[in-house]
Amino acid sequence: MGFFKFLFSKTFLMQLVLAVLALVILTFVLLYGLRASTNHDERIAVPDLSKMSLGLVQQELDNADLNYVVIDSSNYNPDYPTFSVIEQNPAAGKFVKEGRKIYLVLNPSGFREIEIPQLVGRTQRQVEPTLLALGFKIGKIDYRDHISPDEVLELRHDGQTIQAGDALRKTSVIDMVVGNGKGSYRTSGDAAEDSINEADDLEDAGY
């Protein structure tokens, strides 16, 4: 009887109320701390970083309590400033938590260099689409006396002869020297030898 009497005593009921109250307070504190530590329901709109330099990116993300990581450089795009942001993830306008990293792709300093394949000796109709497919531009077409019409005799860039294996930046302008179908296969060495033989013949004849 004494135990049941104690259960309904004011002392026990007061202790029970205090224990329940302490449990409620502890639960509230734990939940509040968890919400605060994980920034529960707190969202930040990702700013548009397109075409920004890394200095401006740093300022913009510091103001938004966000961070960034440069993960790669893209193919050069002349519409974007050098070393500016060309892609970002998450995209502008997306909502993220405080401290989130924004992954950036930058515009490189220029077009990459491309190696020139062996094109001399092929026809102009073969060489032009090859150069265009590689990303080059076709410049002037000069014609030279040569028995093979349409044959590419020489490639040039800024007045300098280009050899197979040379590397030029994409979009470089390449000029061509093409045969016009006139003349012969005789080389300058053959012509020089004929001149010497002709001179010897004239000397033998007494001229």
Results as ranks from 00 to 15, higher is better:
Gly2Met: 14
Phe6Asp: 02
Ser9Met: 01
Lys10Ile: 04
Lys10Leu: 08
Lys10Thr: 07
Met14Phe: 14
Val17Met: 15
Ala19Trp: 09
Val20Glu: 01
Val20Arg: 04
Leu21Trp: 07
Leu23Trp: 04
Leu26Trp: 05
Thr27Tyr: 08
Thr27Arg: 11
Val29Cys: 11
Val29Tyr: 04
Leu30His: 05
Leu31Arg: 05
Leu31Pro: 00
Gly33Asp: 09
Leu34Thr: 10
Ala36Arg: 13
Ser37Met: 14
Asn39Glu: 10
Glu42Ala: 12
Arg43His: 10
Val46Ile: 11
Asp48Trp: 05
Leu49Tyr: 09
Ser50Ala: 10
Gly55Met: 13
Glu60Thr: 15
Asn63Glu: 13
Ala64Phe: 03
Val70Glu: 09
Asp72Asn: 10
Ser73Glu: 13
Ser74Pro: 00
Tyr76Asn: 02
Tyr76Gln: 02
Asn77Cys: 02
Asn77Gly: 01
Pro81Leu: 01
Pro81Ser: 06
Glu87Pro: 00
Phe95Arg: 12
Val96Ile: 12
Lys97Trp: 01
Glu98Ile: 15
Glu98Gln: 14
Lys101Asn: 11
Leu104Gly: 05
Val105His: 05
Glu113Arg: 12
Pro117Thr: 13
Val120Ser: 09
Val120Trp: 07
Arg122Asn: 14
Val127Asp: 02
Glu128Ala: 02
Pro129Gln: 07
Leu132Arg: 13
Leu134Val: 00
Leu134Phe: 03
Gly135Cys: 01
Asp142Tyr: 03
Asp142Cys: 00
Asp142Arg: 10
Tyr143Ser: 01
Asp145Ala: 08
Asp145Phe: 00
His146Glu: 01
His146Lys: 02
Asp150Lys: 07
Glu151Tyr: 00
Glu151Phe: 00
Leu153Ile: 15
Glu154Thr: 09
Leu155Pro: 08
Leu155Glu: 10
His157Val: 04
Asp158Tyr: 11
Ala164Gly: 07
Asp166Ala: 14
Arg169Lys: 15
Lys170Ile: 03
Ser172Tyr: 07
Met176Arg: 14
Gly179His: 10
Tyr185Gln: 10
Tyr185Ala: 15
Asp190Tyr: 09
Ser195Tyr: 00
Ala199Arg: 04
Asp200His: 05
Asp201Asn: 06
Asp201Trp: 00
Leu202Ile: 05
Leu202Ala: 07
Ala205Asn: 04
Gly206Ser: 02
Tyr207Arg: 09
